[in-house]
């Protein structure tokens, strides 16, 4: 039978306690325990730990737990898609595009959706050439400002509706 050192035997104590070692290894552990007082103490500790873990107590849940859970649940709003403002936004976007390119341009835009969508995005983001548009046009600026406002508000709505309810207890902390 192989002789185990303390360093080899100790990691085997837990499987040994559970009886999940094969016969030969278990015998080796047993013979090591017979000759090593330190490891015997460790073995005693290992034997006691499962029972002590089972016996760990937690305090009783506070009596207001159930009401507070139900109150928190009542506050939960199911997240919504919030499509509504998108209609306004897309309308504004179309208005800007139409103003810049004329109705004919707009129809061209829709007939070549796959090719032109990237152009429009690139144009808005500054990677494509700007169409012949007045450099400072009040109506255009206003339309863009309106679009920024509406989309910003829309995002705020969505973020507000999906943010997690605070886990802090009311009136404490």
């Amino acid at each position: 039978m192989t002789q185990l050192t303390c360093g080899q035997a100790r990691p085997l104590l837990e499987p040994y306690v559970d009886g999940s070692l094969d016969g030969e290894t278990a015998a080796a552990v047993r013979s090591h325990l017979a000759g090593c007082a330190d490891c015997r103490n460790q073995h005693l500790e290992a034997v006691s730990i499962p029972a002590r873990l089972r016996a760990l107590t937690a305090p009783e849940p506070p009596s207001d737990l159930l009401p507070s859970v139900m109150a928190a649940v009542a506050r939960v709003r199911r997240p919504r898609f919030a499509w509504g403002p998108l209609i306004l936004e897309i309308g504004l976007c179309a208005l800007i595009a139409w103003y810049l390119s004329g109705l004919a341009g707009l129809s061209a835009l829709f007939s070549y959706t796959s090719g032109e969508l990237s152009d429009v995005v690139g144009w808005g983001l500054g990677t494509t050439q700007l169409p012949a548009a007045p450099s400072l046009d009040l109506l255009l600026v206003l339309a863009c400002l309106a679009l920024v406002t509406v989309t910003g508000y829309h995002l705020a709505l969505i973020i507000g509706a999906t943010s997690e309810p605070s886990g802090r207890r009311a009136g404490q902390g």
């Binding site: 937690a58 305090p59 849940p61 506070p62 928190a72 649940v73 939960v76 886990g167 207890r169």
Partner: peptide, 26 residues
């Protein structure tokens, strides 16, 4: 009871365990 006990063993604080329990149920 079990959830509270679980949360308590996890965070080791009675008040926080209540927070966690509530969050788990929500």
């Amino acid at each position: 009871r079990r959830v509270y006990g679980f949360a308590y063993q996890y965070v080791r604080d009675a008040g926080e365990a209540q927070d966690v329990t509530q969050e788990i149920f929500v």
